[in-house]
């Protein structure tokens, strides 16, 4: 099973080009889509999930043209959006039963068994009779993932699933997400770097609607090895350093400011080499001053 995206473009009526000629081919497993807020991730997710049209391009789920046969695509699809609403006055059990029915599980007995199993899986069985509107954010996300996997979909899209979760909840979510990737194409859209490093062996970085990098996370990190240099500076020196160097990122550590600079060579003796991590690689990819083509993998052919 493969998801193929060809030359996908989308411009909103206000002129914002959310997607620019996106090309991706994604196979089974956990695929991470990393990008900042407003980069086009959710637009891409909604388009694949048949909720949005594109101006140009095609999407194929195996041989199914997602634009021309959305109803076919939806049969193989599970979708956890970034934000979703719930009905008031409806319990988790009732809602899951409803969703299962919508997904085509028309036999009451099958739905009952499935819903029960799902609720156990996501640890909501004890509270299944409670109204969804009383659920905390984490519980709601667990409900969300439960509804997304009804019907064993072949393509699962999760859009920012861990945003807003506390660290413990996030860790538990990683377990469930990693299990999903064993049997299906799972696209994880996120701006949290840790999600990618923890879960994904394949990824793309999207920025301003374009795919800036496509490849394994390790590849991305490798491509900036030896090119990140760090130094402690005073806060008020930052503007000057930004003028003189390509500042990849800056951070405060124990009250002191530190800058990471991108350069093929040591900028000057005051800098020391830094072992880059995913975050550094991500910042380097999206940095406007760094040519994304320098990264190994680059855009998908």
């Amino acid at each position: 099973m493969e998801l193929t995206i060809n030359n996908l473009s989308k411009t909103y009526p206000n002129g914002v080009q959310a997607l620019k000629n996106v090309n991706l081919t994604i196979g089974k497993g956990m695929f991470g889509l990393l990008g900042q807020n407003g980069s086009g991730k959710s637009t891409l997710m909604r388009t694949i999930a048949t909720l949005q049209d594109a101006d140009e391009g095609e999407i194929f789920l195996e041989k199914i043209d997602v634009f021309k046969k959305p109803e076919q695509a939806r049969k193989a699809l599970g979708y956890l959006p970034q934000e979703f609403g719930v009905y008031d006055n409806v319990s988790a059990e009732e809602m899951l039963d409803y969703v299962a029915d919508i997904k085509g599980i028309v036999k009451k007995k099958e739905r009952k068994e499935l819903v029960e199993a799902l609720l156990h899986n996501v640890n909501l069985y004890e509270v299944r009779k409670n109204k969804l509107e009383t659920y905390s954010g984490g519980m709601k996300q667990r409900f969300g993932i439960a509804q997304a996997i009804i019907g064993n979909p072949e393509l699962i899209i999760v859009d920012e699933p861990t945003a807003g979760l506390d660290p413990a909840e996030r860790k538990r979510f990683y377990n469930i997400l990693s299990e999903l990737g064993e049997d299906a194409i799972v696209i994880l859209s996120t701006h949290i770097v840790e999600d990618i490093t923890t879960l994904c062996n394949d990824m793309a970085v999207i920025g301003s609607g374009e795919v800036l990098f496509r490849g394994a996370p390790t590849q991305l990190i490798e491509s900036i090895k030896g090119k990140i240099w760090e130094k402690e500076i005073n806060r008020n020196e930052l503007p000057e350093y930004e003028k003189r160097f390509v500042v990849n990122s800056s951070r405060i550590k124990q009250g002191k400011m530190s800058v990471d600079v991108y350069s093929d060579d040591l900028p000057d003796s005051s800098f020391k080499a830094k072992e880059p991590d995913m975050e550094d690689a991500y910042f380097a990819v999206i940095h406007p001053g760094i040519d994304s083509l320098t990264f190994a993998g680059g855009k998908d052919a």
Partner: peptide
């Protein structure tokens, strides 16, 4: 509601046989 801190899985639900119509 009180949080339930158990682990989360998908496998057991995957084994439930369903016939979508």
């Amino acid at each position: 509601l009180e949080e339930n801190h158990g682990e989360l899985h998908t496998h057991s639900s995957n084994s439930i046989a369903v016939t979508p119509a």
